[in-house]
Design a protein around this nucleic acid. Structure first.
Lengths: 222, 222
DNA sequence: TGCGCTTGATTGGGATACCAAATTGGGATA
DNA sequence: TATCCCAATTTGGTATCCCAATCAAGCGCA
């Protein structure tokens, strides 16, 4: 695999897992020595990460994208029409094999699964549902939104009761799509998105300061 | 301005205006000599254009993104929920100054305006409406979709009667937002998106072969 | 004549050298 | 002691150079 992809994947992983603190400054030369590779693949990886919104420019410098808590509401507002449309389309276009793959994904990741696994598959579930729509733009836009939501979702998954509720909601949505009940499936995913938003906002009250104590750059917290 | 931005802007302009044929192969070394700059900024510009979906990789090579006519339907499917949501939010959040700016934009670009101007402002209108929603994710996703639609829209604007219909629809949408009539505004923009899609699909029958004759790489045309 | 191999040119990926701007740190001065 | 200024360092931006993989053309052999 190309060195650029290696650097890209490792940085992406470290950013999403919060190993790299939001707002942390990245220097091309620092990464060059850290990964023992030259600046050429480092720069290419940073440019791709910038396209995904995971790193920003701050003047001439690179920084890990800060946590923008005000985005929680905006992302829910964005997901709502997209995902309801996706499940509606899924009810007409879905293929049995795809549904089974998603069901297996859910089975493999019960609420008591390891936290990282749960976290990753929670994102994957929504993207897989979007894929059922057969619309690549919907899938891609949702995937981007889920990436932006990924880091703040560490709040949600810290609570096992929340995870159980989310798992049940996921299961319900899948069942309704299987029944081709578009109206109910739309309502279920809309409720799930809204409730996820509210869970995050509630958890936020407790954890914002704890995040700040880690040195994370947080904006939009008012 | 940095050389990378210069190359990025020029390539982007040439791709969107169809000066560079869809599917055309781009070599880093060719661009290097063409712009009389080194490969470093050329490569950075290509990476950014790849993020916007305007150039693709074909094996190790770079190619101008081919025209994907099957995207016309997918883009309409994507815009419909996004833009109806945007106008609904706009009806509650819009600011008078922003509305006036959009009205001026419309006035400055009547259907008999120069074709390039009309084409560009047609895109800008929808993005400006999306901005009224106050949701940055909606705005960005829609801007990306409009970029992907930009090149096939050369079909629509070739017909002055079509431009007049589109202009009237734009005007109507703005008026309804001004009245804060969310339901009617949603219906109007939904109809506009659907009709634009159908106009493009109809024009396509005539122009597909003409495009192909230009050497454009076209996919999804069935 | 047709098939296949060799070889040379071209490609993108990577490494490195150089530059100008920006930053920083310390020392001189008030 | 606080402040200002200048030099050394560090930064991203750019230009080249090298390399391995790929592609093509041309040559030779059957």
């Amino acid at each position: 695999m190309s060195q650029m992809i290696q650097i890209f994947d490792r940085l992406r992983e470290e950013i999403l897992s919060l190993s790299l603190a939001p707002g942390e400054k990245l220097t091309e030369r620092g990464l060059e020595t850290r990964f023992a590779m030259s600046r050429t693949p480092v720069r290419a990886a940073l440019l791709r990460l910038e396209g995904e919104g995971l790193v920003h420019r701050q003047g001439r410098n690179w920084v890990v994208a800060p946590l923008d808590l005000s985005e929680i509401i905006a992302i829910a507002e964005f997901r709502l029409p997209l995902e309801t449309t996706a499940v509606r389309l899924a009810c007409t276009r879905r293929v049995e094999a795809d549904l089974n793959a998603i069901a297996n994904m859910l089975e493999a990741c019960r609420p008591n699964a390891p936290r990282e696994e749960w976290h990753r598959l929670g994102t994957e579930f929504h993207i897989a549902i979007a894929k059922l729509s057969g619309n690549a733009l919907i899938t891609k836009a949702l995937a981007e939104a889920m990436v932006r939501l990924h880091r703040v979702r560490w709040l949600e998954v810290s609570d096992e009761a929340s995870r159980e509720r989310a798992w049940n909601e996921h299961h319900e949505i899948l069942t309704l799509i299987r029944k081709r009940d578009a109206a109910a499936a739309e309502a279920a995913i809309a409720a799930h998105i809204t409730e996820t938003r509210d869970r995050l906002l509630a958890a936020l009250q407790d954890d914002r300061e704890r995040f700040r104590a880690h040195g994370f750059k947080i904006i939009g917290a008012d």
